[in-house]
Design a protein around this nucleic acid. Structure first.
Lengths: 181, 181
DNA sequence: GTCTATACTAGGATAGAC
DNA sequence: GTCTATCCTAGTATAGAC
């Protein structure tokens, strides 16, 4: 079993259970690999696994969230494309965000820098698109933040309510949150 | 040591570390009580502690978030009052939300219903205020959701970036998010 | 590269004295 | 109501065979 198949499995575990909630036993069960095999692939154990997941996610953010924003097409169309990918990534709001699980408690010190960098590059791409669409720099940045805030918050609220409605609505409203109505 | 002093301590622990990250040893250290004393107060252990924290929080939501929204004064003033309390509760964005820590992994099944009820009563109070201010019911509900979404999302993003700016900005914008500009 | 077996630590929980 | 001592399970990690 190769790293390319293990890391996505790890991603699902970390975002479902958070850093502390993920145990080697659970990983073993989910991947079908014995504990010793896991330590063969990841000698530094859980912390290394989380780091490789974050690096995989950073790649995914750039390939799937940022790239569409910097591609050809109208600003509105590019935002719509990103929104669609975001919706899939979070499975319509059923899956929670890695950020939550990897910034609680002690994990925060370990991973905050990595997470912050990924979020920042996403924000940057959104803000750049806003500027390209004619917004002042400061406004573009604020609206970019508002979009990421809304996505993360909608995940939290949807989970709390047991109702995906808020998440789906936010996804739908992403283009107008940057460009206005 | 009485329950009134223990439960707020527990709240801080659960929202900092999440359900899985809180250990009896940590609780013992934070409260100064031995493990056996903790089980004397909470015979069902950690699960009971979390339930009592949630009940305490539900009370706090009603007393500190909902009550100002239903008090006398202009809608704008009431929203500003709530925003101020919210800012304090989250210590300007330094403290994370209980929702995150108690909805990850297995904890979700245990506590989702309780958490959902608290969130719902907060949403209801915001939406009622919107209606009172002249908004159609559906719009009021959406904007109420947007406010809670923005608060929760801002906590996540601020933590990820290591920068309280987004949280403080959202707090400032709460009144206009419901009432418009 | 994967397994079984095992060592060791940390976490949850309780018994019984004071 | 709090403590010390203890039990048991779960969790992390490693050794060594195949």
């Amino acid at each position: 079993m190769s790293r390319q198949t293990i890391v996505p499995e790890l991603l699902e575990l970390f975002r479902k259970f958070g850093y502390d909630g993920v145990t080697i036993a659970r990983i073993s069960e989910a991947t079908g690999l014995g504990k010793a095999s896991l330590y063969h692939h990841f000698p530094q154990g859980k912390e290394q696994m989380a780091r490789e997941v974050l690096s995989f996610v950073d790649q995914a953010v750039n390939d799937y969230f940022v790239a569409p924003l910097r591609a050809a097409g109208s600003p509105k169309q590019r935002l719509t494309n990103m929104a669609k990918v975001v919706e899939e990534f979070y499975d319509c709001g059923n899956k929670s965000c890695l950020i939550e699980g990897l910034t609680l408690g002690d994990a925060n010190e370990l991973f905050q820098e990595l997470i912050g960098a990924s979020v920042e590059s996403w924000l940057q791409a959104l803000a750049d698109l806003g500027v390209e669409a004619g917004l002042p720099k400061k406004i573009a940045r604020e609206r970019a933040e508002n979009i990421v805030i809304a996505i993360q918050g909608a995940l939290v609220v949807s989970r709390a309510l047991g109702n995906r409605g808020p998440f789906r609505r936010i996804i739908r409203d992403i283009p107008s949150m940057l460009l206005g109505n």
